[in-house]
């Protein structure tokens, strides 16, 4: 299972980066989302996979038993998921604005050249 998951993580990375390398703004954002998912999954995988033992202390106990899923990566990912939503929303609106102002979603056309500055 770990092997399959590792391959999926690699695939998500690869496709995310491939999409980010495209010139279309829309693809860039989708790539960003895929990459974010890949990262989350990677952290999750590295925390160790445990089946059917969520990190919730049973009602009768006061500490967790020996085998349980690691809560630390879960807390990390939970934050990451929510934050990435904010990021995506912002990115997507930025793209929208750029598109309205510049009139193209070709990234190559909106690269700016700074003025040569002579001191």
């Amino acid at each position: 299972m770990e092997i399959v998951l590792a391959i999926i993580v690699g695939l998500l990375y690869a496709s995310g980066i491939y999409l980010m390398l495209r010139r279309s703004l829309v693809k860039l954002v989708i790539g960003l989302v895929l990459l974010g998912n890949g990262v989350n999954l990677l952290i999750f995988l590295l925390g160790g996979l445990v089946r059917g033992k969520p990190p919730i202390i049973p009602a009768t106990e006061s500490i967790l038993g020996e085998i349980y899923a690691d809560p630390v990566p879960q807390a990390l990912i939970l934050t990451a998921i929510v934050i990435s939503f904010g990021l995506q929303a912002f990115a997507i609106v930025l793209i929208k604005r750029t598109y309205i102002v510049v009139g193209t979603d070709d990234l190559d056309e909106i690269h700016s050249t700074e003025e040569e500055d002579d001191y």
Partner: peptide, 9 residues
């Protein structure tokens, strides 16, 4: 890059 990440993982 993806393959490397898999191996690394």
């Amino acid at each position: 890059f993806g393959t490397l990440i898999s191996i690394l993982a």
